[in-house]
Design a protein around this nucleic acid. Structure first.
Lengths: 112, 112
DNA sequence: CAGGCGTAGTACGACAGACGTAGTACGACA
DNA sequence: TGTCGTACTACGTCTGTCGTACTACGCCTG
């Protein structure tokens, strides 16, 4: 089975994360599971890659973090959630446009 | 105008170069011009990126270098040409397959 | 009741590939 | 004479990914 190498997807980790956050705020572990399932197990993001993406994107102002209880019934456990900002949405949309262009260009160098 | 960022195309520089070398042996400057024109000026590979790709790919055994005269009439000037090897062809084909998969996966995270 | 698994991360250093900057060298052409 | 196009090379920096390792809590099972 062919695997997706991270160098290929490198430019799109942030975009994938943002795509998930466009629907609703979420947190690391959940996002990682979603990427895995949306891609049919074809792409599994590494923990370190994911969490360093959060730090980077928060610095850039594309996401915001907040903590919330793990259970609604609220035992003390907290999780770090992330929410996409307006700047993040803007960035996500530009990345989508960029993708269409990139896809078209790369395709010219691919033989089927 | 949207520009293709290098992180996106990162995993495909080698593939693009190999695509050009699949047709015939070529050399740095010429390959750079071809990438530029095939992509309609949308992707311009940096010199340093290109030449370091040659070194890397030669080490991996995907390409071979040889020198040849710049003009067929042969004044002393030489150029370094590169030729794709069998291993390089194999690698190129696998990258093309990988691309199809990657494209499909990334697309699931893109909104149009 | 001990140990493993799932959940939910953090810390740290290594590495590869792309990039910025700069410099070389030669010929054509104005 | 100087600039443009051709055809590179050298060197150091930066960014993002990855390997490894460690913490901590709760649940389940033997």
């Amino acid at each position: 089975m062919i695997e997706i190498s991270s160098d290929v997807i490198r430019g799109y980790n942030d975009t994938m994360i943002l795509n998930i956050l466009m629907k609703e705020p979420s947190y690391g572990y959940e996002i990682s599971k979603q990427i895995r399932s949306i891609s049919d197990e074809k792409y599994i993001i590494k923990e370190t890659t994911l969490y360093s993406a959060f730090t980077r994107m928060e610095k850039k102002g594309h996401i915001e973090s907040f903590t919330a209880d793990q259970d609604p019934d609220g035992n003390g456990k907290k999780r770090t959630y992330y929410r996409i900002t307006d700047a993040g949405k803007e960035y996500y949309r530009s990345k989508c446009e960029e993708w269409d262009l990139t896809k078209e260009v790369v395709e010219r160098f691919i033989e089927h």
